[in-house]
Structures are given as structure tokens and as C-alpha cells.
Design a binder for these strands. Structure first.
Length: 726
RNA sequence: GGGCUCGUAGCUCAGCGGUUAGAGCGUUGCACUCACAUUGCAAAGGUCACUGGUUCAAAUCCAGUCGAGCCCACCA
């Protein structure tokens, strides 16, 4: 008979059990027993290969593994497809940082050598990430692991691009776009984060050009701006057509100070009369609204800021080559000297920053590739509106719709080196696709490729068996921060290329914050590596502690206390099993254990009570899991197991079991104490076994380890594929 | 500027119209004999942010105030 150690030691169990699972092959849906028919798929949100996983990933991995293990037990043909994302700009940046320590830039290295370095990085961190998932107990099908830049994926991206292109939805054009001067690339609107900064609002006098020789020398129109340096590129001054103050001035000409360019005063509805003086300077090259105005009024576009955020040759000589902030200072000084600066106010405004390196974004005109969004936005909207795709919590659907409603065309080209090369050189010819190491020219926005994830990972554009069986996927579990960046784009990509939704449910999990409510980040030193927790408490304890805290809020302030609870709970389970095994229960047929029920005769009130409590727990846990209430399910299981089972039933059973018979009063309705003893042991085993099943999705290692030791005839190879209690 | 979420025990969070408001962790006291001291038993600890309203009844619904966070937005 098996004897368990007094204290559960995860270190002795986890690796062994994980190997047992791997050897069984059951992570792979093709190798599941015949009972598992109906497919249930989750594709993992592929982590960026920028570094190791953090608590947010740990939470999401826990959520997905709970769902997958639960469905597998229910008899689904479960596929959890793992993988990683090349994460264009983000990964390029971390490798550049690494190079910087060696005193080299990516330009010193050259494109080819640099890409080689990134692949080395990918080898290291890509594998590290997958190892972390394994340590957490994730039951992914590793034979189907994908990377957003692997060979087949390259083909998928190319196919998608050409599909759009042939439809005329992809076009090349020069527009004012977001430009990161540090990353040296364009960015989409979603890749910008606004940060509040204290600035100034400068009121500048623009002298009017006299209409006739009746000079009125001191006549000016005053404009307000937060960016005086851009005035060097002004090609008009504008006021709202309804603004009476400027009625007489519209149509006149001003002479742009410092430049001496004659520019018109125009009327445009985009101008807000309430802001500043009601008259604005129009800089079409460096402001989106001004760009729009310029198109309407056919104004020239003069680019005075270049890709390095320095003043161009279009600016007057004294400013050329100055950095934006230097130019700003000089412009202000020069205006002051010419007595053209009316006044200065403090002004709090939102500065656009690069979401990957926090450098201030410049708006500059640039030749880029765009994807038309009008039809795609509608395609993304429809299935959510119709309820075919459900968001949990539902409130997030609003921000999804809002974004789709006033969407602009998506700038999909990036001027970085790490990514999918744009498969067309110009609008005229379609080029063959080169392998990533020898590419030239622009690459695609990394989100263009991740948008294809739910079907590209299953073999698309080939019509594979996997694609037929496992698409659409069941649930997408992800962070609310990428609803538009990723989720929306997967939806329209799925509709466009598969004609089917990519997933039915979108579970937006909470964001994991530090105890103080700060964002977990490596650079701030606030990050927690889940591996450290696993080392300290075990994977099950870590998972249970995390699940315990998933209560539906937007944020979770992570506290280790819950992991401590998880460890204690695991120990409790361990010892309950230990107790049972110490009673030397007879070998019991698995079927008879499975079918134990209230119908059975000779049950004591305590027996009935625990069996009823178990039934209630099963129902409640099922309901919770159906509705993504992981924390509640964890609490229910905890209460049932610790209190109903251990505190009450096991304690009571001690007076029933024969080893205690000296203290027990015989009850006449049993023919013998031995029979009573057997019945109690059966119930203990029955409740324990079902508890193990219910707990398995949350704490797979310990439950599997105990299952392996239980005295059951006709035992399955793994608890993982036994039947979920109904 | 628009939208969303949240302010409940020392800490992290449940409860979301109806008996003395709960859990985990922490704290205090007692108890190691036969599953477990990663345990058991007992206890302390809360004007449920504030103000007003609806109701027989409000932590729970409504309005407003204050505080925290997130998302969206071309106001120079």
C-alpha cells in the first residue's frame, strides 16, 4: 500500500507528472481516446519574444489551461495551440538595446547581421517562454507550436496581403503619418500613447500684408500654438467661417514671420473658435487636422521636420538641422526680438509617444502602405452586434464598437528590419517573396500578422484537416489593452479569409498590478517572475492563488498571500489523500466508484450530506466555468474540500471506520462493522476522486499525482482524461 | 473633451435589494495523541468613500461630490 509523505513537495512531483503527461500524448487532440470527439480549440495569445513571461501571462495561462483541462475532462477533443510572436518593433528594440551595451548600432551591423542577431534572441527567449508555460503545467500541444515568422506563417501573411491588394483595399500613398524618430519607423494610430505634459501656449502676431498702399503697419492676426517651430511650415492661417471676428480678414494675406512667406487667411469649419484666439496657423505637413484643411483648400505642404526630428532644408537657413526643441527655442527667441510674441500661457497637453520606446512622435508626410478599413470595420462589427462573438465582461464591447465607428485607414508598413517583408515593391508588379534574412525595404506592422493567428496557425492558406476541425476556436482569453490592436483585427481577418468568426467568446482577463497598484514592469523593477513563485510554492499553489483572485475586476493587485493559501490548500488535499490511503482501502472498481450515488442504501446522515454537497459543488463549478468565473469556482471548491469534506466528513468518518471501532457504537442496521467500514471507505474514495477531477483544471499536478496512487481497478492512464463529474 | 471601471476588516478581495456584512492572508489566545502546526479551536477587527433621494427595507438601486485607474479623441 502506498504511503504518502507528510508534507506535499511539489518539486518531487511536478517534473515527473509533466513527463507522464507528455509521454501519454494527450495534449495532442489526435492522440486522445475515442471518447473525445467534439473539437474545442484555444489558440494562445502568442507572447512577444521580447523577454520572459510575467504575472499577466501566468494569469492568462492559468485561465486557458483551466478551460482546456475542464473541456478535455468533459470529453472534448481539445487543442490548445501554443506559440510566440516576433513582435516587430518591440523585439527589434530589445535587441538594439543589447547591441548598445556592446557599443554598436544596428546600422553598424547591417541588416543581414542584425536579423541574424534577432533570430538568436528569438531562439533563446522563444524557448524560455515555452519552458515557462511547461513549468506552469500548461497542457498545450507542443507538436503544433507556431511562430509568427515561421516559414508557413510567411506564406499566410503574403496570401493575406495579396488578397487585400487584389481587392484594391491595400494602396500606397503619401500621407501625414505618425513617425517615431528613435525607432525610425511609421506607426499606426493604435501604437501611440498619449502622455500629459506641461507645455506653453504661445500667442504669435502674424503681420497682415497691406491690401493697398494705405499701409496700416501695426495690423496683425494673432494665432496661438503649442509648437511654434512648426510655423516655419505654415501655409495658411485659418478661422471658423462663423467667427465674426475674422470675417473681414478671411481672404487677406499675412506674411509669415521669420520666413516672409505670404500665406492666405482662410475659413474652415474644423477650426474651433473657442480655442486660443480663434485663428490658427495651418501646418499641413505636421498636423493631421491641418493636413485635412490643406486638402480642402489646396494648400501647399511644406515639410520642415524630417525623420530624425530635425529641421529640414525647407526651413529658413538659421533653423536648418536644429532639433525640434532647439528650433522651438530659437523661434520663440527670434519672435520675441521682433516683438511678434504677444504672450505666453502655461498649457497642459497630451503628447503623443511611441508605445514601444516612449519617444515623442512626430507627424510627417511619408509614403506608406495603407489598408482600407471601411468594409473591414463593418465585418468586425457585425458578428459582435449579432452576438455570435461575446465579450466577457460585455461592457468592453462598447469600446470595440467605438473604435470601429470612426476608424481610419490602417498604415501597415514599417521601416524596421525585423518582420514580414511587404510582398510587393510597387503597385505595378508583384514580387516573389524572399526569405526574411535577405529582405530589403519595408516590413509589415506586426499586428498585420498576428491578426491571422487563429487560422494561420492551423495551416491556412492551405485547406488542412486541422483548419477544418479546429476553426473557429472557442475562446480567446486576452488583455483588455489589445481589444482594438489585436482582437478586432482578428475578427475582420477571420471574416475575410475564413468567412467565419475566429472565436465565440472573448474573455478579457484582469490586468495584474503590483500591491501598490502600479503596473508590473521589468524596467521599473516591479515585475514578478511566476517561475520564482513556482520555485517557492509550487505550480499548483501559484495557479490556485491566481485563479482565486480572478473575480471579474479590471485589475488585480497581486499579493503573494493568495499563493500561500494555495500552498496550504494543496497540503490539505495531500493529507486528505494520505489519510484515506492510510486506511488501506480495498481495491475498488473504478465504475462502482464513479456511480456512487444517493440511491445507495445504508447511508448515514453524514454520508448523505457530503454527497449532496458534492453534487451542489459540481453544479456550481460547472456554472462558474461556463461563465468565466474562475475565482468563484476556486472558492467553492476550497470551501467544499476543506470544510465539508475534511473538517466534517473525514472527521466524522473516523468514528465509522473500523480502525476506530473500539470507540464506535455498533449500529444494528449493518450486518457487520466490516461492511460499514467498506462503505465509508468507498464514500471517502468517491468524494476524493470527484474532488480531484473538479480541482484538476486548477491544480493539475497534485491531483494527478494523487490519482496515480489511488487504489482503483481499471484506472485510466491519467486523471487528465477521466470523465468529468456531471 | 467623450466613455468605462472601481472605492467594504490592517492587506488583497467577495457580496450587488431582505435574517447578527463574508473569505484568504495577517494579528491575539489556547491546543502537537492516532491525515495535515503548510494543522485545529477560539477571539479581536468594519458609521460597506461622502451627501442626498427611491423603498416597508440599501453596502446593494438612482443623482451628485471627492478619490483611484483604464480606454478612446486631429482642438492647434
Amino acid at each position: 500500500m502506498v504511503e504518502l509523505p507528510k508534507v506535499y513537495n511539489p518539486k518531487e512531483v511536478e517534473e515527473k507528472i509533466y513527463n507522464l503527461w507528455l509521454k501519454s500524448g494527450y495534449f495532442n487532440p489526435d492522440k486522445l481516446p475515442r471518447r473525445h470527439r467534439k473539437p474545442y480549440t484555444i489558440v494562445i495569445p502568442p507572447p512577444n519574444i521580447t523577454g520572459e513571461l510575467h504575472m499577466g501571462h501566468a494569469l492568462n495561462a492559468t485561465v486557458q489551461d483551466i478551460l482546456i483541462r475542464w473541456r478535455r475532462l468533459q470529453g472534448y477533443k481539445t487543442l490548445w495551440l501554443p506559440g510566440t510572436d516576433h513582435a516587430g518593433i518591440a523585439t527589434q528594440n530589445v535587441v538594439e538595446k543589447e547591441l548598445k551595451k556592446e557599443g554598436v548600432s544596428r546600422f553598424d551591423l547591417g541588416r543581414e547581421k542584425f536579423i541574424e542577431r534577432v533570430w538568436q534572441w528569438k531562439e533563446k527567449y522563444g524557448n524560455l517562454i515555452l519552458e515557462q508555460f511547461k513549468k506552469m503545467g500548461c497542457s498545450c500541444d507542443w507538436s503544433r507550436t507556431r511562430f509568427t515568422l515561421d516559414k508557413e506563417y510567411v506564406r499566410a501573411v503574403k496570401t493575406a496581403f495579396l488578397d487585400y491588394y487584389k481587392k484594391g483595399w491595400i494602396y500606397r500613398g503619401k500621407k501625414v503619418i505618425n513617425w517615431c524618430p528613435r525607432c525610425q519607423t511609421s506607426l499606426s494610430d493604435l501604437e501611440i500613447e498619449y502622455k500629459e505634459e506641461k507645455g506653453k501656449l504661445w500667442y504669435i502676431k502674424y503681420p497682415l500684408k497691406p491690401k493697398t498702399y494705405n499701409l496700416k503697419p501695426k495690423t496683425y492676426i494673432v494665432v496661438a500654438t503649442t509648437r511654434p517651430e512648426t510655423m516655419l511650415g505654415d501655409t495658411a492661417v485659418a478661422a471658423n467661417p462663423k467667427d465674426k471676428r475674422y470675417k473681414n480678414l478671411v481672404g487677406q494675406i499675412t506674411v509669415l514671420p521669420l520666413v516672409n512667406r505670404e500665406i492666405p487667411i482662410i475659413a474652415d469649419r474644423l477650426v474651433d473658435p473657442k480655442f486660443g484666439t480663434g485663428a490658427v496657423k495651418v501646418t499641413p505637413a505636421h498636423d493631421l487636422q491641418d493636413y485635412e484643411i490643406s486638402l480642402r483648400h489646396k494648400l501647399p505642404i511644406i515639410q520642415v521636420i524630417d525623420e530624425k526630428a530635425e529641421m529640414t532644408k525647407e526651413a529658413p537657413l538659421p533653423y536648418q538641422g536644429l532639433k525640434v526643441l532647439e528650433a522651438r527655442q530659437k523661434v520663440v527667441e527670434d519672435l520675441k526680438n521682433k516683438n511678434l510674441l504677444l504672450r505666453v500661457e502655461d498649457y497642459l497637453h497630451q503628447i503623443p509617444k511611441c508605445y514601444r520606446c516612449a519617444t515623442t512622435i512626430e507627424l510627417i508626410p511619408s509614403e506608406q502602405w495603407f489598408l482600407k478599413m471601411a468594409k473591414l470595420a463593418k465585418m468586425a462589427e457585425k458578428p459582435v452586434k449579432k452576438g455570435e462573438i461575446k465579450f466577457h465582461p460585455k461592457s468592453f464591447e462598447k469600446s470595440y464598437f467605438d473604435w470601429l465607428k470612426n476608424i481610419k485607414d490602417w498604415c501597415i508598413s514599417r521601416q524596421i528590419w525585423w518582420g514580414h517583408k511587404i510582398p510587393i515593391k510597387n503597385e505595378a508588379d508583384v514580387l516573389d517573396y524572399n526569405p526574411p534574412t535577405t529582405r530589403q525595404g519595408d516590413v509589415l506592422d506586426t499586428w498585420f500578422s498576428s491578426a491571422l493567428w487563429p487560422f494561420a496557425t492551423l495551416g491556412w492558406p492551405k485547406k488542412t484537416k486541422d483548419l477544418k476541425r479546429f476553426y473557429p476556436t472557442a475562446v480567446l482569453s486576452t488583455d483588455r489593452g489589445i481589444i482594438n490592436l489585436w482582437v478586432a483585427r482578428m475578427v475582420f481577418s477571420g471574416m475575410e479569409f475564413m468567412k467565419k468568426i475566429p472565436f465565440k467568446d472573448v474573455f478579457l482577463h484582469a490586468t495584474v498590478l503590483t500591491r501598490e497598484g502600479k503596473r508590473m514592469s521589468k524596467s521599473l523593477g516591479t515585475g514578478i517572475n511566476p517561475i520564482n513563485l513556482i520555485e517557492k510554492y509550487g505550480a499548483d499553489a501559484t495557479r490556485f492563488g491566481i485563479a482565486w483572485q480572478i473575480m471579474g475586476g479590471q485589475d488585480i493587485r497581486f499579493v503573494e498571500d493568495n499563493i500561500v493559501m494555495g500552498r496550504k490548500f494543496c497540503n490539505k488535499i495531500w493529507n486528505a489523500a494520505r489519510f484515506l490511503l492510510m486506511q488501506k482501502p480495498p481495491l475498488i472498481n473504478a465504475d462502482s466508484v464513479r456511480r456512487f450515488s444517493l440511491i445507495k442504501k445504508n447511508l448515514t446522515p453524514a454520508d448523505k450530506k457530503i454527497l449532496r454537497a458534492l453534487e451542489k459543488t459540481i453544479k456550481s463549478v460547472n456554472g462558474d466555468l461556463e461563465n468565466f468565473r474562475f475565482g468563484r469556482a476556486a472558492h467553492t471548491l476550497y470551501d467544499f474540500f476543506w470544510h465539508d469534506f475534511c473538517d466534517v466528513y473525514i472527521e466524522k468518518s473516523k468514528t465509522e471506520l473500523s480502525f476506530m471501532k473500539a470507540k464506535v457504537k455498533m449500529r444494528t442496521k449493518f450486518s457487520s462493522p466490516k461492511q460499514k467500514d467498506l462503505k465509508t471507505k468507498k464514500i471517502l474514495l468517491y468524494v476524493l476522486l470527484n474532488s480531484l477531477k473538479l480541482l484538476h483544471p486548477f491544480i493539475p499536478f497534485i491531483t494527478e499525482e494523487i490519482y496515480q496512487k489511488l487504489p482503483i481497478k481499471n484506472k485510466q492512464r491519467c486523471l487528465m482524461i477521466t470523465e468529468w463529474p456531471k
